[in-house]
Design a protein around this nucleic acid. Structure first.
Lengths: 114, 114
DNA sequence: CCCCATACCTAGATTGTCTAGGTATGGCGA
DNA sequence: TCGCCATACCTAGACAATCTAGGTATGGGG
């Protein structure tokens, strides 16, 4: 995948994989890789700080999980997190529609006003 | 549009609007805004340095155009530019497919191997 | 003849992702 | 049983890209 292409869309991806339910950081990375068929294989140094930032901004909560022997920090979406996810999904659709409109000149956009 | 969403995809957009033919920087900004229905209204401080970078990397050439009174720097795609554009289009398609796969869990991807 | 849209430019701020390190441990294979 | 690897977490600083905020100049319309 191109270098810094996911800049600005990482939050959308992280929040998305957490809609399936609580997960810890390492599992987020794994899920992301699996769900994208290997396209998104993010380094830990990218994901952990991003999760911390999202928690700081109130979109995620975390708890230490000692269930399976090994210590894990499990993350879950907050109410604000769900709202932000919806907003970011819309934003993504607008953005990708914009890109398509620019790179596929043949296909005109639907006109909004009659 | 979300803050830094176009990070990593700006080159794709710039090269795309230049496939229609030679254009100068200001016109690139205008075309981008029009073609995207206002979604991409990029500041000059973003576009001019990006054009310089693309020229430095050999994807664009430029010439000073004194045709219409006012001085303009007209940019055009090079051979490498065309190739890079194709590559970036493919990269975009892979990326957006990946995002869709992650954010729309219901829709499974086509399996590549039989 | 004045003003605004056009047209160009750049230094530095900002931000986000990645590199490159580090620590710790549970479980499996030898 | 013991060593090693995958799991699991973390952070400081590098790096790259975009944006902010300035600046200059000019042609043409009102």
């Amino acid at each position: 995948m191109a270098s810094n292409q996911l800049s600005g869309n990482l939050d959308l991806l992280l929040l998305s994989v957490l809609t399936a339910g609580e997960a810890h950081g390492y599992a987020v990375i794994t899920r992301l890789r699996e769900r994208s068929d290997g396209a998104f294989d993010l380094p830990e140094g990218t994901v952990y700080p991003a999760l911390h930032r999202l928690e700081r901004d109130g979109l995620l909560t975390s708890r230490w999980d000692r269930g399976s022997g090994r210590r894990r920090r499990a993350y879950a979406l907050t109410q604000d997190g769900h709202r932000a996810l919806e907003q970011k999904r819309r934003s993504w659709h607008d953005f990708s529609r914009g890109v398509r409109a620019v790179i596929d000149p043949g296909v005109p956009r639907a006109t909004v006003t009659p």
